Simulated assay, not measured.
Amino acid sequence: MNRSGTDSLTFAMVRCFARCLLAGAAFNTRGMQNISLVFCMQPGLELIHPDPREYRKALRRYVRHYQSHPFWMPCLVGLFLHMERAIAAGRMPAAALAKVKDTTAYTLSAIGDSVFAGSLLIFWALGTICLLLQGHTLLPLLAGITFFTGLQCFRAYTFMAGLRGGFLFLERLRHWDLINWGTRVKYANAMLLLWLWMLLWPRPLIWWQWLPAVVGLMLFGRFVRTGLVSRVLAAMAFLALVQFYPLVREGILDILGAMG
């Protein structure tokens, strides 16, 4: 490939990656993120399939239903472009793309929901709240900038790795053990939640009042996780407990005072 062709390829890939940052802009209830995926793939497909007929066929491969975690969009776009280059070179049948596309997207979606939405985002939010309640302002800002920068670096790396490595990168990604790392972050989130409770609890902090509240919150979480109680009912019960706890406490103290 000559220099002009290399520059065109680089520019097209940069455009694909930049469009991935707008993954949620065209969300719809029918195809979910399919329009966003086509929008991200378009610059690369135009270069990979110069024949208008093959280009239209390639577009149709991505207009049907598609859904995954938005943080994985650059990785998936890079992977799909790698596969499209294999299709254009005759090394891979186009019919094989659909199954690989759905399997990969749904698998990464589950990992993204657990690691990013269910772990790291909560870690950032709880940590920021606790630092602000402690009176810090610079530390939460620096933490937010660090997380944001790290996310963009992660997106750029996975895009390039998927584009260059294809299925080999998926094998490497499996060894990252992201699910277990998400579990470890959730343990840290539990500690941050206890810290938040200690900061919000009315003073003085009396252990025999604080401990039952923590145990009650843990039981609510357990019942919700196992499906025995819906989240709405658990939240209502918890709010009712918070609302009426002072009244119940005063009543108990009055009874004990009268008995004494």
Rank of each mutant, 00 (worst) to 15 (best):
W197S: 10
F223P: 03
H175Y: 08
E171C: 09
P204C: 09
G227T: 08
Y187G: 14
L219Y: 09
G162S: 01
P202F: 00
P212M: 09
L192H: 01
G162F: 00
A237D: 12
P212A: 03
R164W: 15
W176R: 09
P212Q: 02
W208E: 12
F167W: 09
K186I: 06
I206P: 01
P202R: 03
A190W: 08
I206T: 08
A234G: 04
L196W: 01
F220P: 00
W181T: 09
L170K: 07
N189F: 08
W195S: 03
L163C: 14
Y157A: 13
G221F: 05
A161C: 10
L196V: 03
L217P: 11
L173M: 02
W208D: 13
K186P: 00
A156C: 03
M218E: 05
R164A: 15
Y157P: 05
M191I: 09
R172V: 09
V232T: 14
L239Q: 05
G227R: 04
L173I: 13
Y187N: 11
I206R: 04
T158I: 14
A235I: 12
R225S: 06
L194F: 08
L200H: 02
F169L: 07
F169V: 00
R203D: 06
L228P: 03
R174L: 11
A156R: 00
A213G: 03
E171A: 08
L178N: 04
T226M: 06
F220S: 14
I179G: 09
F159M: 07
F220E: 12
P202A: 02
W210I: 03
A156K: 05
K186E: 06
P204D: 10
R203L: 05
S230F: 01
M236I: 15
F238C: 15
Q209C: 04
F167R: 09
A213F: 05
R225T: 11
R225M: 11
V214C: 13
M191N: 07
I179A: 15
G216T: 14
W201H: 07
V215Q: 02
W201R: 00
V224M: 07
M191S: 10
A188K: 07
W210H: 01
G166D: 15
A188H: 06
V224H: 06
L205W: 09
L228I: 04
L199H: 04
V185C: 04
Y187W: 14
W197T: 06
L178K: 02
A237H: 05
F238I: 11
M191D: 04
R172F: 02
F223N: 13
F238Q: 11
W201E: 06
P212E: 01
A161S: 07
L217C: 13
